[in-house]
Amino acid sequence: MKQQVSSTVNGEPVEFLCAADETLLEVLRDRLSLTGTKEGCGTGDCGACSVLLDDRLVCSCLVFAAELEGRSVTTVEGIATPQALHPVQQKLLEHAALQCGICTPGVVVAAKALIDANPEPTEEETRYWLAGNLCRCTGYDKIIRAVMDAAAEMRGATS
């Protein structure tokens, strides 16, 4: 029995049919063609599939798509505006904080959520917030610097 689900994805109303045991990650990638959200493990251990569910950071591999009824999702495709990258995206590029880039979509979403919740994160807070976003290329150094730099820039822009 397929479930019919009405939700909002990246600000747009979206309706889809899914199986009851289908995950949000599967629906995003396979039914909505939003392949920016990546699957690294399927068990919530790597963070590559991070999305915002009603503004809360979650692993989309650990959410049933059927739970989305009436709720909203933001994916990496919904972070930048048509005019400009989000400061997190811009700073990740300036700091060369990605090598292969597979973890980057999850890092972008998680870092945006961090700064939204805590505009002035310390290094330790940034590291613990991002502990669920595995990166095997960078050793995290440049990611942490980029995210803190983005937070600083956003504070500067709003003050």
Partner: peptide, 19 residues
């Protein structure tokens, strides 16, 4: 400088093996 494929990789536009 910023890498040529940078935008693709921070916006989710870059296509990897399973995409």
């Amino acid at each position: 400088p910023i890498r040529p494929d940078g935008l693709d990789k921070v916006t989710g536009r870059a296509n990897f093996g399973a995409d």
